[in-house]
């Protein structure tokens, strides 16, 4: 076979392969099909809640803390409001707690530091597959939410964040059962020092049953809700709106 003809054949073969892959892509990402597959998330959530909603995640000795804890997502929020807070050392940072609560709150960082706190050395698991061990100190969410008093209708807590990522504000949702877990804290310290900007200064969530994308950084407001389909893209979080499971425990 002469070279030009072989080149043509090779090209045709590559085109067919390319078309086949594009077809496969179309089927594998078909919205209805993916929605059906997402049914497994319900099973994951139910089973995990049944066997270990209250179990504590493993805590590690101080020697296991990594010196190179990776920061993902926003590492320096471009938002002007946030940058103004950085410039003033977060002196005027206020955490709003509202929605389906008995007593809406606006707490300063000093007031949050005065709440019952917990320190834990835990493993952070990124959805990409890597893990890093770090120490976190923060206010117990149970105490914080208890201060505001959840109304009976409240099912989820929405965490609104200061950072804009890829054109949208970051946000997350937790279920009430996760909020009262003893290891669920709003951390203001990491590895014994103040939380740094790449890791979510001045406040970030730690909910140790879950993957990294649930651990919202730069938290400004907690809203207790009975539904979240009107918030953001309606799926219960920034990454959830982009196809990730809201459960995030696997």
């Amino acid at each position: 076979m002469n070279p030009p003809r072989r080149g043509w054949l090779k090209g045709a073969g590559a085109s067919i392969a390319s078309l086949a892959l594009a077809g496969c892509d179309k089927i594998a990402t078909d919205p209805n099909l993916v929605k059906a597959l997402a049914g497994a998330e319900v099973l994951n959530r139910r089973v995990q809640r049944l066997i270990g909603a209250r179990a504590l995640a493993r805590e590690f000795p101080r020697a296991d803390i990594t010196p190179s804890f990776r920061a993902n997502g926003s590492t320096n929020p471009p938002d002007a409001d946030y940058q103004a807070h950085v410039a003033s050392g977060f002196a005027d940072w206020t955490l709003i707690v509202d929605g389906l609560v008995e007593k809406p709150l606006a707490l300063s960082l000093a007031e949050i530091r005065a709440l019952p706190a917990r320190t834990q050395i835990t493993r952070h698991d990124c959805v990409e597959g890597w893990s890093c061990i770090g120490e976190w100190t923060g206010a117990k969410m149970a105490a914080l939410v208890g201060l505001a008093g959840l109304k009976k209708q409240a099912k989820h807590i929405v965490l609104y964040c200061a950072d804009t990522l890829g054109g949208s504000k970051y946000y997350e949702t937790l279920d009430v059962v996760d909020v009262v877990h003893p290891q669920t804290i709003l951390a203001y310290e990491m590895n014994g020092g103040p939380l740094t900007v790449p890791h979510g200064a001045p406040l970030r969530l730690r909910a140790e049953h879950y993957l990294g994308y649930k651990q919202a950084k730069y938290v400004m407001r907690l809203e207790a809700v009975d539904r979240f389909d009107h918030i953001g893209g309606g799926q219960g979080g920034y990454w959830e709106d982009r196809g990730y499971d809201r459960f995030g425990g696997i």
């Binding site: 496969c24 594998a28 993916v34 597959l37 497994a40 994951n44 196809g243 990730y244 499971d245």
Partner: peptide, 17 residues
Amino acid sequence: TLPPQQFLAVGRRWHFF
């Protein structure tokens, strides 16, 4: 890979189902 394009969220849906 499934799906062929890099799309972790959808890959996880297939995997866990």
